[in-house]
């Protein structure tokens, strides 16, 4: 065994390296850096179909991430999905008639909520509801629609 001082130093470095690795995993690898930083306000949006949207999916405006999906519920009275969005407080100038749409990043990618600002004077506040929404595109629906149209075209001929 090495002398006491060297041992202590190396053990200290080992523990520091282990903790640093955990820190890297938390900050660099996981989504820790993308939530919990700063205040947010909550708005809700109702969709007919949310596709594969998940809690903590991104909320973007013009491609810039401004918040995340905080909750997903189903309103069994109106048969709609209710999605809660946590938007960062520094983005507090979205017009009240902002619309929300669910898009897919790439063909097979993650789904996210994209906001499209409107022209109203009033702004979205905590507890506001986004009225204009566009549901997720469901691939199966698109394909079957496409096939039906092809089939009916064929019938006409």
């Amino acid at each position: 065994m090495k002398s006491n001082k060297t041992t202590e130093l190396m053990v200290g470095m080992f523990i520091a390296a282990g903790l640093a690795a955990l820190f890297v995993l938390a900050m660099q690898v996981s989504n820790l850096s993308s939530f919990g930083n700063g205040d947010t306000y909550r708005v809700t949006a109702r969709f007919e179909n949310i596709g594969g949207l998940k809690v903590r999916s991104a909320v973007t405006v013009g491609g810039v991430r401004v918040g995340r999906v905080a909750s997903i519920d189903y309103d069994s009275e109106r048969f709609q999905a209710v999605v809660g969005l946590d938007l960062e407080s520094k983005y507090d100038r979205f017009p009240e008639d902002t619309s929300a749409a669910i898009y897919t990043a790439g063909l097979l990618g993650e789904q996210y909520v994209a906001l499209e600002p409107g022209g109203s004077e009033d702004v979205l506040k905590d507890g506001s509801q986004i009225e204009l929404t566009q549901s997720a595109l469901v691939l199966e629906k698109l394909i079957s629609k496409f096939l039906f149209e092809k089939a009916s075209e064929g019938d006409k001929k």
């Binding site: 080992f14 523990i15 282990g18 690795a21 955990l22 890297v24 995993l25 690898v29």
Partner: peptide, 16 residues
């Protein structure tokens, strides 16, 4: 018991 999680964290970080 203390070393294992530290080593695993180092393994993961280095691996990534």
């Amino acid at each position: 018991f203390i070393s294992m999680p530290l080593l695993a964290a180092i393994f993961s970080a280095v691996g990534i």
